[in-house]
Design a protein around this nucleic acid. Structure first.
Lengths: 169, 169
DNA sequence: TCGAAAATGTTGAATGTTCAAGAATTGGGA
DNA sequence: TCCCAATTCTTGAACATTCAACATTTTCGA
């Protein structure tokens, strides 16, 4: 094990030994992370995303690919830019993920005839079939949440999140 | 520009031309992403995190490092495992982030005398000073949110998120 | 007491993401 | 019309994260 003692030069050494004297928690917890909205959001997102990920792993598909398929499910062409915005990925990341999905024959590219800078993405039949299976996996997760967390709370939370997103962007 | 036409073999071509006939939105939108709690959480988290990140960038510090400093601010030693859990990072990622922070003399390592498998992390004086500055940057973001989004909604949202986290984990 | 299994951290390779730059196309003003 | 700036997407290099394997220490049952 590698402890970098050199880096401690010039630091107070009081903190180390102090630990053994602070068995009881201080009355006013030192402004813990959980007071911050940003942290609660990160934590909740992480947990819910984990669960969803584990469901979708049945099909070996990352959450983002499900989102992409879902957006393309309307059968219309979506530009890379619009897609990136919709699925919360930035452009280069999306490009490379789409490359993989094209290799898997889940989606395909077409040049936009009206604006040839643009690339329009379409879902394939294979992609549609996969998306259908993924949708039901995701639906079962939502059902699980609703059961554990309650209909009302879920609805209220969604509403508040939508408002926050509107207010923040 | 590289359009992989080979990948489209065997796909229905109906979707493309169809687009021009669906100008008006269908009455029942094709189950868009925004109906899913997981998506709303991801979106809100992304937005809030972006804002926080941009504030903290004044000090050139990623959000995770602020969280680490905040946890260590109690002056006690925290094991890598506990830290990882608290700041929502997995072990290897934390190890490498801590390596950077040690290089920057923000924190330092000590071996736990009681359990020598463990490494205890401590904050340095330099780290404390930085953390103080970061706290006020973060506080100004929270104030901004409260102003735009409302006291009541923020409190309610926090409460619901806490419950969700409890229910989900 | 001994030894196997569990717990704790770190490492290196594989993988993924991001940043900056580039290519192609469009748009709009001189 | 022509050219330069803006838009859209992709690429390659730098960077960060993750997975699996490892080393060390502790725990606990035989």
């Amino acid at each position: 094990m590698h402890i970098d003692r050199a880096a401690t030069a010039g630091h107070s050494f009081k903190s180390g030994p102090q630990a053994k004297f602070t068995v009881a928690k201080p009355p006013h917890p030192n402004t813990p992370l959980t007071e911050h909205l940003a942290y609660l959001l990160a934590q909740a997102n992480r947990e819910i995303n984990r669960q969803l990920e584990s469901r979708l792993s049945t099909e070996g598909v990352p959450v983002e690919q499900w989102r992409i398929l879902k957006v393309l499910s309307d059968g219309e062409g979506h530009s890379m830019g619009d897609l990136a915005e919709a699925v919360l990925l930035n452009h280069p990341t999306l490009t490379k993920m789409i490359d993989r999905m094209v290799s898997d024959s889940l989606v395909y590219r077409r040049q936009d005839a009206n604006d040839r800078r643009k690339v329009l993405m379409f879902i394939s039949d294979r992609g549609k079939a996969l998306c259908k299976r993924l949708n039901s996996l995701a639906a079962s997760q939502e059902a699980y949440i609703l059961a554990n967390y309650g209909d009302k709370a879920t609805g209220e939370l969604k509403r508040l999140l939508e408002n926050l997103i509107d207010a923040a962007s």
